[in-house]
């Protein structure tokens, strides 16, 4: 049983750290810099917004 717990804890830690790293990457790549703009962009209805996101 103790082995099971150790495994679960290790998995939880790995998954949590992985998610954290992905979030850090997202923050660094500027995805949280313009929350208002991103909320508005969803309303733009043509292909140019896909180009602009490059």
């Amino acid at each position: 049983m103790m082995n099971g717990i150790a495994l679960i804890i290790a998995c939880a830690l790995a998954v949590g750290l992985g998610a954290l790293l992905i979030l850090f990457w997202a923050i660094e790549s500027g995805q949280y810099d313009d929350l208002e703009g991103d909320a508005m962009r969803i309303l733009i209805e043509d292909s140019s917004d896909r180009d602009a996101k490059k």
């Binding site: 810099d33 313009d34 703009g37 140019s48 917004d49 602009a52 996101k53």
Partner: peptide, 18 residues
């Protein structure tokens, strides 16, 4: 963004609304 993008040569336009 589309207006500025239409200037020949411009490769990237991004407006930060915040």
């Amino acid at each position: 963004e589309s207006g500025v993008k239409a200037i020949p040569g411009v490769t990237e336009v991004r407006l930060n609304l915040s």
